[in-house]
Amino acid sequence: MDPFLTSRIMTDLLGGLTNGVVYGLVALSLVLVWRSTGILNFAQGAMPMVATYLGMGLLSYNLSYWPCVAVAIVAGFTIGGITERVLVRGLYGKPEINPIVVMVGFLIVLEAVAAAVWSTKPRGLPSPFSAIDWQIGGKPFGLSDFSVFEILTAIGVMAVIAALFRFTKLGLQLRASAIAPEVSRLLGVRVGRMLTLGWMLSTAVGTITTILVASNYFTGLTPQVMDGVFAFGFIAAAVGGLDSPVGSIVAGVSIGIILQFVGDYLNSNDIILTALLILVVSLMVRPNGLFTRSSARRV
């Protein structure tokens, strides 16, 4: 057996990849909403958290794992849609701090309500796959059944979103509504519905992400389960470019890997410090993101 496969570097690389795809998913869900409605959704972690409680809470009513996941995703779609219709619709075209403040308020309310209803005590979600690392030649290899599931799910979600946007009529309308809403309406595109759909998709992607994060044995599901992940996801989206889905995913994975090495070789406190440093430096060097082509400011 090649000793490199079980080396510290390889383990960190694979562990970082597993975290990174999660950051990439969060960044992707932020980009979906940012591109279509120009709003950075600070409740992007909290809305899926509620959907996850609603769906996975059915576990205690003896529903099995996969139906609960399906319910959670449906709840995610619904919460995203209702939020856009009720809370966000009046904020388009307002000064940029208005949506920021409202979504921060929504984040606080959702976390507080979730804590009031379900308490702050972590709930373990039974993972359908073993989280114990594989063994190669008696040594642990940096992947487990669960982390492979995590990576494949993330790739699957990204592929579905990419295919939807690139190859379907619906995707064409979603993209057109984001780029040129008025022209799209003149061509008969129901732009209002597209914006709602953007929020629904984004919250559903977030729900899948939350289930992956909360299925981790060490975290479990808590009202604040997505706070830290949201911060890393935002950093990934800002570094990759809030306009660029591909950039945000690449940045998410890269940040995940870098931070894994930092956590292993330095210490765990340096993880978020490094992330902050990456954000500061990348905004200095490429203010519009590493993957955004145009740097023109929209007036």
Binding site: K169, L172, Q173, R175, I179, S184, L187, V189
Partner: peptide, 13 residues
């Protein structure tokens, strides 16, 4: 940002 054909596909929606 759209190709010629994508513009037309959008129109044909």
């Amino acid at each position: 940002e759209f190709t010629v054909e994508e513009n037309l596909r959008l129109g044909a929606m």
